[in-house]
């Protein structure tokens, strides 16, 4: 049953990155949109993401619950050593969610809108940035429980060059996913071109920041790149991801919305898969080598069995209704704009 739980954990992480990521990305796209088109972006974001965004963020809750029920030492270690970036990420989540809803439901549309927009766009940037930093800190091996000073214990692990570059990489991924997604939803030909252009730019940014991650790993003394390309499986995955870049640009040029989304999702899935394959079963790489893995940190017996059943039962309810929700709001509303 442990494998069922692990499968749900991996699925939730992937879906959070893809769906939640595209969601954060909408704010990032708004941030880099020229002011004359911003209102347009906002309307499109509201129409396409409004109905589904709360559901997209539930994956994070599922991840957290799986961690604290199934892998309590991991949850506890993350909470202790990455307390500060987690808090900053939470501030982002609070700011973003509330500003997104408030700006729509404020009955009077006045200068307050600018405040909401400001909070929404910047927290859309900050949240994935810290999520990335946390992910980077989890695999960099900088978490050192034996350290003595406040800085070494609670600050150094997540302020490494590597962690920060993973943060930047995550922000690019989110923006990229959102631009691809939004370009397919826009009906105005001119504005669609703008989104496609952004999708291309953000795709380039993703590739560059991906390279930055490898470079940062090298500088920080992690042999990540060598390990990924000398291992046949991860090498194949990375090659597939790189080749699909050509497909992506082709579909973007041809304005094939569904195919572009599929390829963009594929690329991000491949990146996560390569990293997942490389590090599995380790989840939290520790400085002293006592890594916390999905096996050695797992609860045993009934907690895992009941968690697995709860997840299976939950997904029977959640997945069909979630797909129906996303499907329903993909169609143009009938009779009203």
């Amino acid at each position: 049953m442990l494998y069922v739980v692990i499968a749900f954990l991996c699925l939730s992480i992937l879906l959070y990155l893809l769906l939640g990521g595209a969601d954060f990305g909408a704010g990032i796209v708004e941030l880099i949109t020229k002011s004359d088109l911003r209102q347009n972006t906002r309307m499109l974001t509201y129409r396409t993401i409004g109905p589904v965004w709360e559901a997209n963020h539930m994956w994070l809750i599922i991840i957290i619950v799986i961690l604290f029920v199934g892998f309590p030492p991991i949850y506890s270690a993350l909470s202790i050593y990455l307390h500060i970036p987690l808090l900053l990420m939470l501030l982002g989540i609070i700011g973003r969610g509330t500003a997104f809803v408030f700006r729509h439901y404020d009955a009077v549309k006045d200068d307050m809108q600018r405040v909401y927009n400001l909070i929404f766009t910047y927290s859309s940037f900050i949240t994935p940035f810290f999520l990335g930093i946390i992910a980077g800190a989890m695999i960099s091996g900088d978490i050192n429980p034996d350290a003595n000073s406040f800085y070494e214990l609670y600050v150094a692990p997540w302020t490494s060059f590597f962690s920060i570059s993973v943060g930047i990489f995550t922000v690019s991924i989110c923006g990229f996913l959102a631009a691809v997604y939004l370009s397919g939803e826009e009906t105005d030909q001119h504005i669609r071109q703008v989104f496609i252009h952004k999708a291309r730019l953000l795709n380039i940014a993703t590739v560059i920041s991906g390279a930055l991650v490898f470079f940062a790993a090298y500088v920080d003394g992690l042999s990540l790149m060598v390990e990924l390309i000398t291992e046949p499986v991860t090498l194949t995955i990375l090659i597939l991801a790189s080749l699909s870049l050509l497909l992506l640009w082709h579909f973007l040029n041809k304005q094939k919305a569904a195919a572009s989304r599929l390829v963009a999702g594929f690329q991000i899935t491949m990146i996560l898969l390569a990293l997942g394959y490389h590090y599995f079963p380790d989840f939290l790489v520790m400085h002293n080598g006592a890594n916390l893995s999905l096996f050695n940190a797992a609860a045993t017996g009934k907690p895992i069995t009941t968690l697995a059943w709860a997840l299976i039962l939950g997904s029977i309810f959640i997945l069909p209704s979630l797909f129906y929700l996303i499907y329903s709001f993909q169609k143009e509303p009938e009779g009203q704009a």
Binding site: M58, I61, V65, V69, T306, A310, G314
Partner: peptide, 12 residues
């Protein structure tokens, strides 16, 4: 954890 995992579903 049981009520929390079920609550995750309900919240979702």
């Amino acid at each position: 954890g049981m009520p929390f995992s079920l609550e995750g579903t309900a919240f979702f």
